[in-house]
Nucleic acid binder design. Structure first.
Lengths: 239, 239
DNA sequence: CCCGGTCTGTTCGCTATCGAACATGTCTCG
DNA sequence: CGAGACATGTTCGATAGCGAACAGACCGGG
């Protein structure tokens, strides 16, 4: 499933490095991350930004009573840590590894230095941030109006887009945490999807069998986010 | 209620102009806006950014079936149109006037020119954007977990912070659109608040009588957003 | 190969919210 | 001042999701 450490396959980082001039990034390192690793804690200073290669990050808000809700998903199309770019040194959110794998890690100071030096990196990063914002606002709307079934579809599609195969390693319990619903609700929704032949479930492994049908069952929210992400990620952009 | 056109009282714009060097903004104009005015339409090119003086903007996502959900609220602490700063020229969101009043309007090109010329404007704008992001993610979490009663409290507090008095002009129907719930739900929640002596309602006019109690009845979401907004808005910031 | 832990499936009553329908109150304009 | 438009209040099923409890299935380690 996880191949050996790969070359720079993060789309954002690839663009950044492609245009890099003289010096490179001395402290850019490849790190391996496991499912569930907490990368950022709520309101704690952020020290590194991460560029996923084949892992997926999840941004969550965890409430006082422990309930949680996923705010956005980050795969190899972008980066984790835009909030430091925006000038906050922390966020009220928690970042966890939703799918294990590798990511490139860069100290915040080094990334900021590059940002100051190069307009094109600014442009790229901000466009990606705009895509993230779209994801967040769509999540808000989706949370308000759509059923667990629809949201599960959205979640599966968002994850699928950030993975290579059609399989994901994820228990229903964890999905429930992400969606901010009960585990039983996910069990039922997943059961319905399985009965419809859309997915196949087995102890923490989901295989998507019929992606078109999955998209049909999904609410509009996935498509809106996808469209914006594609549009804004269409490198290069004219500054 | 609405005084005559005021000097520049928008906090963000004030900072921008305070540090302005030679030339000013030739096309910065004061405009008067009425409740319900649609400032941006979903996916339409954005031509102006707006700096509220005493009006309030609301960012909404409107679903295909017409249902809507408020994503964030913008008052004189910030600006409408950060998405153009981020490099999208549009968003899937709609912006409407939630509370009538005045705002300063600036053509996008002119604002972008200033951004390119001045690092401090970048910093200010991005910090504000980060505050907006916090608001959006908190909205997502709140939509997931909190009751209409709690969300109404949050909404009232967010609005109150952006107004001068303790009165707001807003029908239950419109609040329902913002929150993305039924009008009847708002009627019942507002009725409970009124019975508790927290607010007073009368045909489109709400008066907040007991703000401390309102904050007590509210979920944590308001406080989280407030704290971040204050923290990130604490001008000046060191670049 | 057995046992404890983990994951999934199922059930039951409960509550918040929905959708629809309708009643009443109040402002405004002709 | 009277009619309509608009804002609010109330009610009644229907339903999605919750909370809790428990059963069975599967896995991996001793």
């Amino acid at each position: 499933m996880t191949d050996a450490p790969k070359p720079i396959q993060n789309q954002l980082l690839a663009e950044i490095i492609k245009n890099a001039k003289h010096r490179d990034f001395p402290d850019l390192v490849l790190v391996e991350l496991s499912l569930g690793d907490a990368i950022y804690e709520s309101d704690q200073p952020i020290e590194f930004v991460y560029f996923p290669v084949d892992c997926i990050f999840s941004l969550l808000y965890v409430m006082i009573d422990g309930a949680s809700a996923e705010i956005s998903v980050i795969g190899n199309e972008g980066m984790l840590g835009v909030s430091v770019v925006m000038g906050g040194d922390s966020t009220p959110n928690r970042a966890v590894v939703q799918s294990k794998g590798f990511a490139y890690r860069l100290p915040v100071a080094e990334f900021k230095k590059e940002l100051q030096a190069r307009t094109d990196v600014w442009v790229l990063t901000l466009r990606y941030t705009q895509a993230l914002i779209t994801q967040m606002s769509q999540t808000a709307a989706c949370n308000r109006h759509h059923s667990i079934d629809q949201q599960l579809c959205r979640w599966l599609l968002l994850s699928l887009d950030r993975l290579h195969g059609n399989q994901l390693t994820m228990t229903q319990e964890l999905i429930a945490n992400m969606l901010g619903v009960r585990r039983e609700g996910v069990t039922e929704a997943a059961g319905r999807l399985q009965k419809a032949g859309v997915i196949q479930y087995q102890r923490g492994h989901i295989t998507v069998l019929d992606r078109p049908k999955l998209e049909k069952l999904c609410c509009e929210c996935y498509a809106v986010v996808k469209r914006e992400t594609d549009r804004l990620g269409s490198f290069p952009s004219k500054p």
